[in-house]
Computed example of a mutant assay.
Amino acid sequence: MRRSGIGRGGTPLARVRRRCGMEHNELRRRVDRVQRLVALGLLLLLLGVAPPLAAWTASWSYAAGTRAENAEQANRHQVVATVTSTGGIGSSGDRYIHETVQASWPGADGKPRVGTLPTWKNAKVGAHRTIWVDRQGEPTVRPRPHSRTVTDAAYAAGATVLGCALPILIVYGLVRRRCDRHRDELWEADWARMDAAGHNPRS
Rank of each mutant, 00 (worst) to 15 (best):
R177D: 02
G9D: 03
H146F: 11
R113D: 08
A156N: 02
I97L: 13
R2Q: 09
V16N: 10
R142V: 07
V114P: 00
A50P: 02
A103E: 02
A71S: 05
T151Y: 10
M22Y: 02
T140V: 15
G93E: 00
Y172G: 00
R28A: 12
K111W: 10
L169H: 07
G126I: 06
V38L: 15
Y96E: 07
L186K: 04
A68V: 01
G115S: 10
L117M: 04
R2M: 04
A68G: 01
W60Y: 09
A159R: 08
C164I: 10
V175W: 13
K111S: 15
V83H: 00
G90M: 05
A159E: 07
C20P: 02
A108S: 15
I89S: 12
V83D: 01
E185C: 00
R18V: 05
R181V: 04
S85A: 15
A108P: 05
Y62F: 12
L45K: 05
G41E: 09
C164P: 03
E138R: 13
A55K: 09
I131M: 04
L166W: 13
T84M: 02
A68D: 06
V38P: 02
R202W: 13
G198K: 08
A157K: 01
G41S: 15
E72K: 01
R148C: 06
G198N: 03
R76N: 02
T119E: 12
R95V: 06
T149F: 02
R3I: 10
L166F: 15
C20E: 12
V175R: 02
A108Q: 12
G107H: 06
S104A: 11
P118C: 06
D184L: 14
C20R: 07
K124A: 15
M194V: 06
P106H: 10
R142C: 05
G88A: 13
R28L: 04
R177Y: 14
T160D: 05
V171N: 08
D109C: 03
L162I: 12
L45I: 12
R19S: 14
V114D: 14
A157V: 00
G21M: 00
Y96C: 08
R30Y: 09
T84V: 07
T151D: 12
E185M: 09
R129P: 03
R3G: 08
N200D: 14
V150S: 04
A50C: 07
P143T: 04
D152R: 09
L117K: 01
A63Q: 04
S85F: 06
P139H: 07
A103G: 03
V133N: 10
A108G: 06
A108K: 05
G163I: 08
H182E: 11
R17S: 12
D180G: 12
D190T: 08
C20K: 06
C179M: 04
Q73E: 13
A165V: 05
S92E: 11
A74Q: 11
P51V: 10
T149M: 05
A50Q: 01
T86M: 05
T100Q: 15
S85N: 11
R144Q: 14
A197G: 04
P52C: 09
V175G: 03
E69I: 00
A74P: 01
I6N: 11
D190N: 10
T119P: 09
A197T: 06
T57M: 05
T84E: 06
N200E: 11
H199I: 09
P167T: 10
V16Y: 11
A50F: 03
W132Y: 10
G90W: 04
A58G: 14
V171D: 07
R113K: 15
L46G: 04
E99D: 14
G126S: 08
Q78W: 00
R176H: 02
